[in-house]
């Protein structure tokens, strides 16, 4: 197992380098530069490009960047936070975004699982239909609309919790964003759990379990849920990363200084270094999630572990 993990880890690192390479190429092909401002003269632009080493050929920049990344240096911001070290600039926002993302994911998964199971157990009844409608509304309404509605009704009209993020009171001020962001995972996971659960409940071994007279609760937890989990774990990883990228507008609504804000600003201001750094962080998170998912597969489903061992 550890050999397998090690191998996967190595491959992940290569994937990450490949992603940086792709990003570099894409930004290279992009029209304009961070410095295409109306007010800069040609001479100044040349000085700026030279100052940040952007006049060097592609492979030199790429090589240098890789070396720096290994040292933990992601470069400096060109425009949105002039000359600030990016590693320093994104550390706090990233922590904040991950915190909100994980909160939303945990709440979303738990509620989603519960909803899904209830719906599956009541397959083809009104309860099932009700949950279906709720979850479909959940995916059809964008999270930022939820966010604004929550701000309007719970934050403003009822005045229960603060609307805007407040660094001195993160617990309370992150409640609304967490709820807003958890809507999509709830809807997605509950739909998915429901259909997986129905499949599992129809399988022969559940029939056997039932025939053995095992209690329903124990049957669901010990027999059905475990097999339902495999595909669910698959969607959970990417969902979490999506929450981080997708939180952009929700962050905007609640004025959360998270990574989504930095990324959207960097993109609109052509701040290449920050775009690459943010994308790099996302990619790294994503690949780590995929790694965890792969390992979880093995834990949840022994058959996969055996199959992997064979090949």
């Amino acid at each position: 197992m550890s050999k397998y993990v090690l191998k996967r880890l190595l491959i992940s690192i290569i994937t990450l380098i490949a992603i940086i390479f792709v990003l570099f190429i894409m930004l290279d092909l992009m029209p304009g530069s961070p410095f295409n401002d109306e007010k800069l003269s040609e001479a100044q632009k040349a000085i700026l490009l030279a100052k940040y080493g952007l006049d060097k050929p592609f492979y030199v920049r790429f090589g240098k960047y890789l070396v720096n990344v290994l040292k933990g240096d992601l470069g400096v911001s060109y425009t949105i936070n002039k000359n600030k070290a990016i590693a320093e600039m994104i550390a706090q926002p990233l922590k904040l975004s991950i915190k909100v993302g994980i909160q939303a994911m945990v709440i979303g998964s738990i509620i989603g699982l519960i909803f899904g199971i209830i719906a599956a157990l009541n397959h083809n009844t009104w309860i099932d239909s009700l949950f279906s409608v709720v979850s479909i509304v959940g995916v059809s309404v964008p999270s930022y609309v939820f966010a604004l509605l929550l701000a309007l009704f719970i934050g403003y009209k009822l005045n229960l919790v603060p609307i805007l993020y407040n660094a001195s009171d993160p617990g309370r001020s992150l409640i609304l964003p967490t709820i807003a962001l958890s809507m999509f995972p709830i809807a997605n996971i509950s739909r998915f759990t429901r259909s997986e659960m129905i499949d599992v409940l129809n399988s022969e071994y559940i029939l056997l379990v039932q025939a053995k007279g095992i209690k329903e609760k124990s049957m669901i937890i010990h027999h059905a849920l475990r097999n339902t989990m495999i595909p669910i774990v698959t969607v959970m990883g990417p969902l979490l990363v999506n929450l981080l990228t997708g939180s952009m507008v929700v962050e905007k609504v609640f004025a959360i200084p998270g990574i989504g804000q930095i990324m959207s600003q960097a993109i609109t201001n052509n701040d290449y270094n920050v775009v690459i750094a943010c994308a790099f962080v996302y990619s790294a998170l994503y690949i780590i999630m995929m790694l965890i998912v792969d390992i979880l597969y093995g834990i949840i489903d022994p058959r996969i572990r055996v199959a992997k061992g064979d090949s």
Partner: peptide, 21 residues
Amino acid sequence: RFAEILNGVPTLVVVTLLGLV
């Protein structure tokens, strides 16, 4: 790995960059 590379680049970045060209 190919899918991971493709998916590892955040959609937002891909879409925005495509938007420019």
